[in-house]
Design a protein around this nucleic acid. Sequence first.
DNA 1: AATATGAATAAGTAGCTACATATTTTTGTC
DNA 2: GACAAAAATATGTAGCTACTTATTCATATT
Lengths: 233, 233
Amino acid sequence: MSDLDRTSWQGIRDQIRERILDSTYRPGDKLPRDHDIAAELECARSTVQRAMRSLADDGIVERKRKGGTIVKPDPVTRAVLNIPIARIEIENRGFDYRHHLISQDIGAAPPAIAAQFGLSQASPVAHVVALHMAAGRPFVLEDRWISLDTVPEFRSVDLAETSANEWLVRHRPYSRCDVQIHATAIDADDAQLMGVAPGAAMLVLERTTWIGEKPITHVKATHAEGYRLMTSS
Amino acid sequence: MSDLDRTSWQGIRDQIRERILDSTYRPGDKLPRDHDIAAELECARSTVQRAMRSLADDGIVERKRKGGTIVKPDPVTRAVLNIPIARIEIENRGFDYRHHLISQDIGAAPPAIAAQFGLSQASPVAHVVALHMAAGRPFVLEDRWISLDTVPEFRSVDLAETSANEWLVRHRPYSRCDVQIHATAIDADDAQLMGVAPGAAMLVLERTTWIGEKPITHVKATHAEGYRLMTSS
DNA sequence: AATATGAATAAGTAGCTACATATTTTTGTC
DNA sequence: GACAAAAATATGTAGCTACTTATTCATATT
């Protein structure tokens, strides 16, 4: 470890992590307080603070006011997924991007969507089904519901030009996003759209985004057979 | 917003985010420098720094020394997954946990694993197949390879007592973890173990963990039909 | 004995200064 | 005009002080 690293917050973080790795501190153990670690490693408490916040973000330790810092007793693997706009992902892979609008309509929210959005069934929603194509082959099938209470201007968006995916992400940043990932055997209709055999195993991402307490959109994105979602790290 | 929040770093973060939401600053735009934002919102630069780091962590802005801060031109959805130890996840759902060792052996690394680990094929690895059961039903099938160069003491672990999953996560914290998620049609052998029809759509998580540059383990975890992986938020 | 109350504690936040580091822009020289 | 050196600039990091907040623990009161 270089002399520079010795006092940088990453260096402090690494030293603390090292002690967790070599079982100086074991899962469930209480670590010394920031002040004492700072004294021992000869740095400021703010530097220990910075290191500890990083370890807490990584799920390695848990911090509580007064309670102090403990090594997380049940370690979890924390993976960060980056889910880009479909067009960007396709272009990044060097493929030509195209986007087909399959259907588009407006009406009252069906029960499942109303429940997901926490709204009454009278609420108006837009329903858009679209296919994102990579080099002429289906890449992602998206089945999307948009709350028109929250996004009234969506009524006048021309989806031939911009996909709903892209329009929303560019015009309606969200404050919260719930993601669910599962595998499903594709049904006959979707199989036809995706050009695969009915019953094929597909990776599905469902996302709901919110601005404050208000729902923006819920989307079910069915990915091409063999698609792999991965952490960048 | 309360007076207290107005100057807290969360308050500053919210105000900056608000300006991104309402298109005062648009994707690709350069934000004022920290110093000026601090002057305008009447707080210290360190507070703006804290707020900006949070926005950068969330993938909303990009910061570069000298270059300044810009609103990320291609917004990405950043989802954080918590992947607990199988036993903990099962117990949290209120089910009885049991663990069956299917097979266990030691030998030279097959080509795919050697490549994944960046090792020669002469390297000794352990191969463990095990089933995690929830309330008597198969929940996760794990097919795991462990580098014995990195974890020599794994040879003497009694896998009847503790699962490899749990032993490793408790004794060998890692510095890096790559995750891949995909859907697959289950093969006949695995289908029998999992108690599902051959060809059923299964969610598979593949993880490789490293300590520094040295591989610890690679695991392919096939989850029960209908399993949903979700962000905690 | 049960229950408030308050003191002590340890992390969280805010503010300041100073310097480091990585770029970009300007300037100067050939 | 090309290219290298130097200056300017914006974020990153480190250190310090002071104060805040949440929680525990001990003590006093009923």
